[in-house]
């Protein structure tokens, strides 16, 4: 098992090398002059040259690349010109914020979508099947910034149930000691239930917004693969052996239907993690997506490169995790892996 994981990680190396090269080149060919941006609108050409020199941008591309890789090997992703912090530090504070939000949204999506999909398949053509279709269609067709704003309008502005959409914590709370970077977990570890409650309240609306979006593909996939499993011959055998409805649906049909669902989960998760910029913007969430977009607009290379690289590593880990899950679910995969 361990050697298999090691082998899988090895196969990811070429991908990562490719990502490093491509992001490096891409940030260099993008329009926009970093030096000019940071020297300010009133800077003289000499001042811009000065900044260029300071940033090492006057050297040739290969030389820049070598020094970039050297720094990378030491775990140095450079510094962000806009925040003034090192990229590593920025990512370390912002990635957990995004991950916490995304995971919460995903868990919410799964908790609703999987039972909904199963029920829709078991009672094909009933009202619950139609409900599943409506919910799924609504989930994909409503843009997240719209559903996010709608939730803010309703639950914060109209009803006043939710706290203001102003980031991970309200102004009265202080962030818990960072252990995992997830406020919910860290505050529990610190036994600071007040902060936990505050962080949880802040999390609900953005997580629901993301959950609504994640729900659609998961529900549709669960329904489709459950329908296939339910009409399979082994389910007929299970029925003919007199197994209870519960055993037939859960142990026989659902476990077999889980493979495509897990694949979808992986895709949805990786998609949400990078692409929830809009939700982060609406809820002023200090996440990694908005960080990368801001940096890109300001032609601030180092954070963009750091972001893409982090994402690539995350995808690799995620795919590995999904492959391992496959093996847990389906013994046939274990042999082929």
């Amino acid at each position: 098992m361990l050697s298999q994981i090691a082998r899988r990680l090895l196969t990811a190396l070429p991908t990562l090398i490719g990502v490093i090269i491509v992001t490096f080149l891409l940030t260099r060919v993008l329009p926009g002059d970093t030096a000019a941006y940071f020297a300010g609108p009133a800077a003289t050409p000499q001042a811009i040259e000065e900044v260029k020199k300071k940033l090492g941008l006057d050297r040739s591309l290969p030389v820049q690349f070598v020094s970039y890789v050297e720094a990378l090997a030491k775990g140095d992703l450079g510094a962000s010109l806009s925040t003034g912090q090192t990229v590593v530090k920025d990512i370390r504070t912002r990635l957990p914020a995004s991950a916490e939000l995304t995971l919460a949204g995903l868990v919410l999506g799964i908790v609703v979508a999987v039972p909904l999909g199963i029920l829709a398949a078991v009672r094909q053509g009933s009202w619950i099947d139609h409900l599943c279709r409506v919910v799924a269609t609504a989930g994909v067709s409503l843009p997240v910034f719209f559903s996010g704003l709608l939730l803010v309008y309703l639950f914060y502005y109209r009803l006043g149930w939710a706290p203001p959409p102003m980031g991970r914590l309200d102004v009265f709370s202080t962030a818990p000691n960072s252990i995992t970077g997830f406020y919910l977990i860290d505050s529990l570890i610190a036994r600071d239930f007040e902060t936990f409650r505050a962080a949880f309240a802040q999390l609900i609306l953005p997580a629901v917004t993301l959950g609504m979006f994640a729900l659609a593909p998961i529900a549709r996939m669960t329904r489709a693969s459950m329908l296939a499993a339910l009409s399979s011959e082994f389910v007929r055998t299970a029925k003919a052996s007199g197994l209870s409805t519960r055993a037939v649906i859960v142990t026989y049909a659902f476990r077999n239907a889980m493979l495509p669902v897990v694949t979808t989960l992986g895709m949805v998760f990786s998609f949400l993690l990078g692409a929830n910029v809009l939700v982060e913007k609406v809820f002023a969430w200090p996440g990694i997506g908005s960080y990368a977009v801001d940096a890109l607009i300001k032609s601030d290379f180092a954070p963009v490169q750091g972001f893409v690289l982090t994402m690539a590593i995350l995808y690799v880990m995620l795919n590995l995790l999904i492959d391992i899950l496959y093996g847990v679910i389906d013994p046939r995969v274990r042999i082929e892996a």
């Binding site: 399979s232 011959e233 082994f234 142990t251 026989y252 476990r255 389906d330 013994p331």
Partner: peptide
């Protein structure tokens, strides 16, 4: 009353 089926491999739960 019990039944046995054609295509025995498909008639068994593949992951149990």
């Amino acid at each position: 009353i019990s039944m046995i089926f054609q295509n025995p491999r498909a008639a068994l739960n593949p992951i149990r």
